[in-house]
Design a protein around this nucleic acid. Structure first.
Lengths: 221, 221
DNA sequence: AATACAATTTTCCAGATTGGACTAGATCGT
DNA sequence: ACGATCTAGTCCAATCTGGAAAATTGTATT
């Protein structure tokens, strides 16, 4: 009855988890919240367990250790975002790059609003070198950058995006969306901006598009 | 022999500090570094003392506690930045708002490059509500915002800055400068951008100005 | 230049919190 | 009802914070 895959004898694998899925989910949610507030070093496993409402040794059981939990939590955020992005982008044909850019900005902003951890966790890890940062770059950041960078260069050639380093422009756009959302608590107090409101998010999206994509989409010949 | 000021009997006050100034300076430098890396919660006073190369109870002696040390360190960053900003702005007359905006962007970028803590500490504190955030907003962020916001509105009226919420625009500009610098470790790995180099900083400044201040300064009548 | 005393530093401690290990028992899929 | 999976509860060594107490240093007065 043993399952054999790739020629290696696997363990019986007869049972599955049931309630544990809920526990893992609760732990992941709590971990995302905690890590995005206080960073990896600033977060204790007990804090995460408390937020999740479970006993803290369960972290060891389900995720081996704090490092692996961080990785699982981060993975979930980026995976979800990617799914949302791919789904949104699928609706716009390649022939309309400006419309695609708009949908990208709006999707990123929308997702960030609901999950500010997307940008906050990057910010935490960018504060000093670590293996976590390397992992983040290789597995999630670089792939996204490469793709968007390419399309940005294309849009510069047709005059939709201002000239200049496309790498810098990509990151400027990124922080104008995610970076502002990460600061939303401060923005509310300092500038009276409420990025939890749909209207202001839409206004920010419009502004980003107006500023960074000022050119008109050329008509096909 | 006691000194009397304001009618209240003061303590003798006969002695001054000498070497302690060095200790305080070392502690402040170390604190800025540590807090900007790991945030308030994520930083231990022992870590700060170790970085400073002094014994940790000296923090209690000189700054009372971790909270006060954070406040002193933050104060120093913003004070220094303000001095640099005022000095730079003093060279440009009020009649040339676009030139003033340029100098503002370049100064902010320059200072952030040498002291990324300026933006990083704000980001840490904006992750969840705290008295530290309130203090930061009231003492340093709000005053700066109010002033720049006003001049931004003026520049919109003469067509130098795109229309739209000036509050949003201010913060977009701010994160394009400080926010990118805060991410510089990641940017190097993901995008091949080195914000430690003078050239790339200048390139970023140019780009920010081109994107956010596209209009020409109108000639005086 | 000797002394006294405040300013500063060092040494040490108590109580709390950290990440992680371990075992016994409850629970769930089969 | 069996046995693997999951949870509760306990424990530990390391590290944390905030202080107290002792030792040292520098300065001002005599």
């Amino acid at each position: 009855m043993d399952v054999e895959i790739a020629g290696i004898a696997k363990k019986p694998e007869r049972k599955q988890q049931q309630r544990s899925i809920i526990t893992q989910q609760k732990l992941l949610d709590a971990a995302i919240q905690a890590f995005s507030e206080n960073g990896f070093k600033g977060t204790s496993t007990r804090d995460i367990a408390d937020r999740a409402g479970v006993h803290h040794p369960l972290i060891t059981y389900h995720f081996k250790n704090k490092e692996q939990l961080w990785r699982a939590a981060t993975d979930r955020i980026f995976r979800e975002f990617n799914i949302a992005l791919v789904k949104a982008m699928a609706e716009i044909p390649d022939e309309e790059p400006k419309a695609r850019a708009e949908i990208f900005v709006r999707t990123y902003l929308q997702y960030s609003r609901n999950q500010p951890a997307l940008h906050r966790i990057i910010l935490h890890e960018a504060n000093y070198p670590s293996e976590r940062l390397d992992w983040l770059v290789e597995n999630h950041l670089k792939p996204l950058f490469d793709e968007v960078h390419k399309s940005l260069v294309g849009m510069q050639q047709i005059g939709v995006v201002p000239a200049g380093s496309a790498a810098l422009l990509f990151n400027m756009i990124r922080v104008c969306a995610g970076g502002l959302v990460a600061l939303k608590l401060e923005l509310k107090q300092t500038s009276g901006i409420d990025l939890d409101s749909d209207e202001q998010i839409a206004e920010l999206a419009d502004l980003i598009i107006r500023v960074f994509f000022p050119g008109e989409q050329p008509k096909p010949a």
